[in-house]
């Protein structure tokens, strides 16, 4: 564990708490992409299968369970609980059908694992989750774009999620310098970089709006 990784994890936790606060305080899921939450749940469930095979630390296991549980809860709220359910507008969240994200990532993961000779289902699903995570934020970014004016807490949610990814890149740099038994994984680096790059545009408008103290409005 290093400071970047821990700060990244905490940023991720804060983002989830902010999202829950956002849902509860406004009593609606307008501006929130259910699709992104569902993609994240697929990511967590396929990546954290090692909960059953490898024990890293209590912290690690606890966080994995917490991510799966909180994301499941958020999806349940938006899909089945009032008033979120009736206010959720699926037509605003139409970009990127789940299967068009899952299928290419699954194909790519299978190919990558064949090349690397990692043929256990857990390895293949883990690699799949690395690719899918890079795409998971895309529907949320499109929902923001549709409404243009981003509600405060929703903006913070995306900001903390982006900060988490940015801090993870610093964590990989740190680890490669200071950990003796560290093996590079370029697939992780590339998809992590792609994932972070997706946030850059949002970050720019977020920081500018905070600097000038105005509302966060995205350009058309």
């Amino acid at each position: 564990m290093n400071i970047f990784r821990f700060a990244g994890d905490m940023s991720h936790v804060v983002s989830i708490l902010v999202l829950l606060l956002r849902l509860r305080s406004s009593k609606s899921a307008v501006g929130i992409s259910l699709k992104t939450q569902e993609l994240f749940l697929i990511v967590f469930v396929t990546r954290y299968l090692d909960l059953f095979t490898t024990f890293y630390s209590l912290y690690n296991s606890f966080m994995k369970v917490a991510y799966i549980a909180s994301t499941t809860y958020i999806i349940w709220m938006i899909r089945f609980q009032e008033p979120y359910k009736s206010k959720y507008d699926a037509s605003q969240d139409s970009f990127l059908h789940i299967k068009f994200a899952v299928a290419p990532c699954a194909g790519l993961a299978l190919f990558a694992c064949l090349v690397k000779g990692e043929l256990s289902p857990i390895d293949i699903l883990w690699t799949f989750s690395i690719f899918l995570e890079a795409l998971a934020i895309v529907p949320q970014l499109f929902v923001l774009q549709r409404y243009r004016e981003v509600e405060n807490l929703t903006g913070h949610y995306v900001f903390f999620l982006g900060a988490y990814r940015g801090l993870y890149i610093l964590n990989w740099v740190y680890r490669s310098y200071y950990e003796q038994f560290y093996r590079h994984n370029w697939l992780v680096y590339v998809s992590g970089a792609v994932q972070t790059a997706l946030y850059v545009d949002f970050f720019y408008y977020y920081v500018v709006s905070k600097y000038y103290g105005g509302k966060l409005t995205l350009p058309t």
């Binding site: 990784r5 890293y56 560290y182």
Partner: peptide, 10 residues
């Protein structure tokens, strides 16, 4: 054993 990057991460 070497741990591959990110396998022990969240």
């Amino acid at each position: 054993a070497k741990v591959a990057a990110a396998k022990d991460e969240l």
